[in-house]
């Protein structure tokens, strides 16, 4: 089976608030997937469930076809979490050595140091005395200590400067070449676009889009016209209109996705489509992307 991660109808509630709502997706071996969304969209909660740190309130999460809490799974995954904590009183080299001892086939110390670029001096330093960027590199080393097949990065580049960011993505590219599956979360559209083959877009705990970056960007600008109808044949007719991207039915309404709602309305009236209670919606994607792009501008 090529499925590395599988989520089926997964929801997570914290008390009364629902952090993740009915999420399903499959991630295949060797792919690089960005989980994109504004802050508070449910990205970290979803990652935590894939890592087995949180139990879903509903639905099923499988990693390598089994429960993510299994030791066999742990042996094949690595993760860099948002809060990079360090164990105190130990030196960088000691922590790396300690982590390597947990796995059945770890990376060698040489591979690990060259991958993270720590020099001899840094290796001898106490981890608690490292700078933010160095800590992140240590976190990266620990995520890779067990030579994992599947690696999670939760907001890996927050707080990194441009050089450090570029270095990080170069390292990720080499992991990808080795056939590893990489899942990362980000709230930068640009990063998701540049470094992933697939974007799963989250907003308010739901997946609002899932596909390759080009598809997603194509879909962003979409608005829709929706109406109720008794005409069963309406789909064929609607799809023959030039401006229509796609049509679907939801909650008894027909949705016509388009970039030009005015043109679609004109066509509907000209063809005397049996349409009642017509309304026009701005795509949710658009809002989400406005948030995302706005945020990116602020950080620059």
């Amino acid at each position: 089976m090529g499925n590395v991660v599988q989520l089926e109808h997964v929801s997570k509630k914290f008390g009364k608030t629902t952090a993740v709502k009915d999420v399903s997706f499959i991630i295949e071996k060797g792919s690089t997937v960005a989980i994109l969304g504004p802050n508070g969209a449910g990205k970290t909660t979803t990652i935590s469930m894939m890592l087995g740190l949180l139990e879903p309130s509903d639905g099923m999460v499988k990693v390598f076809d089994t429960n993510p809490k299994e030791i066999t799974v742990r042996n094949r995954i690595g993760a860099m979490l948002q809060e990079t904590s360090v164990i105190d009183m130990l030196k960088v080299r000691e922590i790396m050595e300690m982590f390597r001892s947990y796995y059945t086939s770890p990376l060698s110390m040489e591979e690990l140091t060259s991958l993270t670029g720590f020099n001899a001096d840094e290796l001898k330093r106490r981890a608690s005395k490292l700078s933010g960027g160095q800590r992140r590199r240590l976190g990266f080393a620990l995520a890779l200590a067990g030579d994992p097949d599947l690696i999670f990065f939760d907001e890996p580049t927050v707080g990194l400067d441009i050089t450090a960011r570029r270095n990080f993505w170069e390292k990720v590219a080499t992991l990808k070449l080795q056939g590893k599956t990489v899942i990362f979360t980000t709230h930068y559209l640009q990063e998701a676009d540049d470094f992933s083959e697939r974007i799963i877009l989250f907003n308010n705990g739901e997946i609002v889009a899932d596909g390759n970056p080009d598809e997603i960007k194509h879909n962003i600008a979409t608005r829709s016209v929706s109406f109720q109808t008794n005409d069963k044949e309406v789909f064929a007719l609607l799809q023959s209109f030039d401006q229509v991207i796609r049509c679907y039915e939801k909650d008894g309404r027909i949705f016509v996705v388009t970039n030009d709602t005015d043109a679609v309305l004109t066509e509907i009236f000209r063809n005397k489509v049996d349409a009642k209670n017509i309304s026009i919606e701005n795509g949710r994607l658009e809002e989400v992307f406005e948030n995302l792009t706005a945020e990116r501008k602020e950080t620059i």
């Binding site: 740190l53 030791i71 742990r74 690595g78 067990g146």
Partner: peptide, 18 residues
């Protein structure tokens, strides 16, 4: 307590070391 509050225990849970 320190390991718990600083997230180290959480991080340890991700490793195959039980």
């Amino acid at each position: 307590v320190q390991e718990q509050t600083e997230g180290w225990s959480t991080f340890m849970k991700l490793t195959p070391f039980p």
